[in-house]
Simulated assay, not measured.
Amino acid sequence: MPDDPGGVVCGQPGQAIYARRDERMLLALLTSFIMMTGAPPLDEALSATEAPRTLRAAFTVELSSQNASRIYNYDPRRDMGERWQVVSWQGDDDELEEVARNWASEPAPDGRLFADDLRASMGRDVQVDDMGHAWRIAFRHHPSQNDGEFDVWAAERLQATAWLDPVGERFLRIDYHLPHPVAGPEGGKLTKYDQSYFIRTEPRWGISYVSSFSIELEARAAFRTISRRYSANIVKTEFFFSSAEAEADFEANRKGPQLMSGLPG
């Protein structure tokens, strides 16, 4: 009988079936596959990120960089000039302050908590790898209506990966990674770029929201290296609908049509 290089020899004389090797090959086929974004459980996870426009959020966020940290509180129920407030201020970082100013100047800063354009960004088909504890989903980012010029530029150069809990049908995180150095959109060379969004699920309505995100980049220009790293951690959230009617409509749509019984024959 010939040596078995990793499998078990069995079957009729002259037949050799290497069971372990076949199992590994079958497992590889089953754990890596193409999936349409409209199929479950991916469709359910995407639907959970698509919060209705009537859902709002009050939140407290800690912005941090290598040199400074800021804590802000936002509540859309306060008067316009009082909605974005400083809670804590440590260190000096002009760029971190600019990040906060840009966020505060948006019409609805709480909109950043909802990744509602993720379905459009993923497109129709994705590559799925079953990692056991979660699904790793590789996709090419398709620019959406909410993307700016940098997002369009980055879509052609960054690798996008989503992590999905297939049992809970919810996303866990979204990662964007630059696989190799490229020329920057404004000159120089971008040598490193990593961006991650961590996702949590709001327990009352089952909506997925961004609980934190981080960006780390390195660029070279004019004989110098520029490194930037900052993160935003949502430390407190309160979700609510813009009106009682909006909440009732959401609840009714979530329950779907009810089966009718007791109809006369």
Rank of each mutant, 00 (worst) to 15 (best):
V61Y: 02
E98G: 09
G38T: 11
T201C: 13
A222M: 15
R136E: 14
A100T: 06
A16V: 10
P76K: 02
R53G: 12
D125P: 00
P109L: 01
Y197T: 05
P203I: 04
E106Y: 04
P181E: 05
R21W: 03
A120I: 05
A100D: 06
D79G: 08
K189Y: 13
W205L: 09
E202L: 11
H180Y: 15
Q145F: 05
P179R: 12
A134K: 07
E97R: 06
Q159C: 12
G7Q: 01
A221P: 03
R20W: 08
T31F: 00
E98F: 05
R112L: 01
A160M: 02
L113T: 02
T161A: 06
P107T: 01
R124K: 13
N102R: 10
Y74C: 04
T49N: 07
S65D: 06
S261A: 14
L29W: 15
P185D: 14
R112D: 01
F239C: 01
V87E: 13
A248K: 12
E23Y: 12
P143I: 10
G188P: 03
A248G: 04
K189S: 10
W135Y: 11
Q12Y: 04
G111C: 08
E218G: 09
D125L: 05
P13E: 10
G123R: 13
T201G: 06
L26C: 12
E23M: 12
A160E: 06
A219F: 09
G38F: 11
A115S: 09
Q145K: 14
L27W: 05
R228H: 11
T60V: 14
K236I: 00
D194H: 11
T31K: 13
L30S: 08
G148T: 11
G91H: 11
K236M: 04
Y74K: 02
T161M: 10
D165Q: 03
I199F: 09
G132K: 13
R119V: 01
L42V: 13
G123T: 07
N67M: 05
L29G: 14
N233Q: 03
E245S: 14
R173V: 01
G265A: 15
